[in-house]
Structure formats: structure tokens, C-alpha cells
């Protein structure tokens, strides 16, 4: 038997040459959509994370190309509408997108070009997974990766409304939901994500979540020493933290970065709709059905008796007679 691939701790390593078996197994799933009872895995993988240091990003889109290359997607050739974004938005053929924001910093009067790599954040508490009605269409592995399992997806788009980051896109051709997988297929084989591997400045790094937080702290210290006093880590706790994190120079204002949510949370209405309300609704329907059945069994039915038929004939005769007389 071939050995299992190691759990990856970096995107920089080269792939091994000997054949290895996958190390991201169905039994490593800790949560799955519309499957409330998942058997607890027998092992806990080390939590991983991708760290995107926007201060190091030069906006070259190597990651975007690597993503399309690895995932074999072909975004449509678009038109230049005067923006650096290309394509204009995430799509079922583009799982990650460089977003470019021009910001005039009032404190320094300088123009800042804030470039952010947009894509799935791999939330610890994923809204997409909670909203999805199809069993097993969205899974979360014990290393933190949130993955869409296309065979189980029905293309309803509930994940789109569940996600606090507006990430999933439904393929108009295959009718399944798509997004960044954090290269779960590469991670399974001990490799880091393709984008991180391609990044020429190492603005994208990959490793254990712990190591990435430690690395971010060094970066933040460095940024602070260079005048970015609000530099910080974006690992939003409203969704339990994320497995894609940003180092931001303006961590106090995430929304400067092309609308990165300041305090992302699963929308309350999604929580309500997917929460106890459904049980109450089903219970109400069940009670009504049982109540009707009991009434049907124990109460007397409204039955028409033979004397009602006679009364009816009497009424009809009288009414007909009266009408005839009126006419005459």
C-alpha cells in the first residue's frame, strides 16, 4: 500500500515523486450540509490556513492564473470597462479575483492602492453550509477546509444567500455551486494551494493556522514599525474565524478593501429561517394533520340525512312555485 501524503505545512514545497495516497478522507468530514448527525471523525487534522498579506501584494494576478490553471476553469473573455478587475466578478469559472481599490488616506493625503485577493474565506462557521438543503453538498473537514461536493449539489443557490462574503457562484451550465476549494485536492496530497505556490512575492502563504497567525504577527509588527499603526489580522470572529486570513494595513476599516465586511456574520434571517423556525413550522403542520385526523375519527361527520333530502325537495318546490306565481 502506498503511504498517505503528509499534511502540508507550506505551499513552497515541491511535490514528492513517489505515489502517495490521499490524506483528506470522507471520514475527516466534521460538518456536512443538511446532515445534522455526522459521526465524529477518529482523528483531528491540524487546522490549516492561507494568509494573504495585502501589503506585499503587487496585484500581478499570478494567483488568479494559477487558480484557473489548477482548477481548469476558463473565464469568458470580457471587455475592458476601465477597471483592473478581470473578469468583473467572481464566477463559476473564476474562484478568486484580484480587487483594486483606490483610497485617498485623509491622514496622509496620499493615494493608496489597496489590492485584495477575493475568494472563499473558509469560515469556521460557514453560512453556505448552514443554508444548503442538499445532504452532503457542502462539507467541512477537520482541517478547516470548506468544500462543495458537486455530485450532491442541486444548484438551488441557497449557499449564495447563506454566505456572508458573497462568494459562491452557480454554474449556469452545470447547475452546481462553485467556489475556491482551498485546493483541497492538493492539500490531500500534501501540497499547498496553487495560488500560494504561484505568488511571486509570497504575499500568499499557507500552513497550519497557528503558524500563519504567528507569521501574521511578525508582519503586523513590521508594518506598525513603518507607520501603519492600524495594521492587523483579519480573522473575523463573527464567523468563528476563517481559514483564509488577511494582513491588512487598515485592519480598523476592512471595508476599504473593496467592501470586505467589517464584521461578517451569518445573517440573522438566515439563522432564523434555518433554525428552530423550521421545526416549529413542521410541528404546526404535523399537529394540524393529527388534529384533523383525530377530529375525523372521533367527531361526527357532517352527514346529509334522508330527511334533509326531503326538506330540500320541499324548499325547492316552494321556491319554484313562488317564482312561477310571481311571474304569472
Amino acid at each position: 500500500m502506498t503511504d498517505r501524503a503528509p499534511q502540508p505545512t507550506t505551499a513552497a514545497a515541491n511535490p514528492p515523486v513517489q505515489p502517495l495516497a490521499s490524506n483528506l478522507l470522507p471520514s475527516d468530514v466534521v460538518r456536512a450540509s443538511a446532515m445534522p448527525h455526522i459521526t465524529a471523525p477518529d482523528r483531528q487534522l491540524t487546522k490549516v490556513a492561507k494568509l494573504i498579506d495585502v501589503s506585499k501584494c503587487i496585484g500581478c494576478k499570478a494567483c488568479q492564473s494559477a487558480c484557473a490553471e489548477w482548477n481548469d476553469t476558463s473565464p469568458e473573455i470580457g471587455e475592458n470597462v476601465g477597471l483592473y478587475e478581470n473578469p468583473a466578478d467572481l464566477s463559476s469559472e473564476m474562484f478568486t479575483l484580484m480587487r483594486y481599490a483606490e483610497y485617498e488616506n485623509p491622514a496622509t493625503n496620499e493615494l493608496e492602492w489597496l489590492i485584495r485577493k477575493e475568494g472563499c474565506m473558509h469560515c469556521e462557521d460557514p453560512g453556505c453550509l448552514r443554508a444548503c438543503p442538499a445532504p452532503g453538498a457542502i462539507v467541512q473537514y477537520s482541517n478547516g477546509i470548506v468544500d462543495f461536493i458537486h455530485e450532491n449539489c442541486i444548484g438551488c443557490g441557497y449557499c449564495v444567500t447563506g454566505c456572508p462574503f458573497d462568494v459562491p457562484r452557480i454554474s449556469p451550465v452545470k447547475h452546481v455551486s462553485t467556489k475556491c476549494t482551498l485546493c483541497s485536492d492538493r492539500v490531500a496530497m500534501g501540497q499547498g494551494p496553487a495560488c500560494a505556490k504561484a505568488c511571486p512575492t509570497q504575499a500568499i502563504t499557507f500552513g497550519t493556522k497557528e503558524a500563519m497567525i504567528a507569521h501574521a504577527e511578525e508582519r503586523i509588527e513590521d508594518l506598525k514599525s513603518r507607520g501603519y499603526e492600524n495594521a492587523g489580522l483579519y480573522d473575523p470572529q463573527g464567523v468563528g474565524g476563517t481559514h483564509v486570513m488577511y494582513v491588512l494595513h487598515h485592519a480598523d476599516q476592512p471595508s476599504l478593501y473593496s467592501g470586505l465586511p467589517d464584521d461578517p456574520q451569518i445573517a440573522p434571517i438566515v439563522e432564523d429561517w434555518k433554525g428552530p423556525a423550521k421545526k416549529v413550522g413542521l410541528a404546526a403542520i404535523g399537529l394540524a394533520a393529527v388534529g384533523a385526523a383525530l377530529h375525523g375519527i372521533f367527531a361526527r361527520p357532517l352527514k346529509v340525512e334522508p330527511e334533509d333530502e326531503e326538506d330540500a325537495e320541499g324548499l325547492v318546490e316552494a321556491a319554484e312555485r313562488r317564482a312561477r306565481e310571481d311571474r304569472a
Binding site: A319, E320, A323, R324, D326
Partner: peptide, 10 residues
């Protein structure tokens, strides 16, 4: 029913 009977009579 009464109305239908009345119309019938008319």
C-alpha cells in the same frame, strides 16, 4: 339552493 330553485321556477 333557494336561488337556483327560484330561477328554475322563473
Amino acid at each position: 339552493l333557494r336561488e337556483l330553485a327560484g330561477r328554475q321556477g322563473e
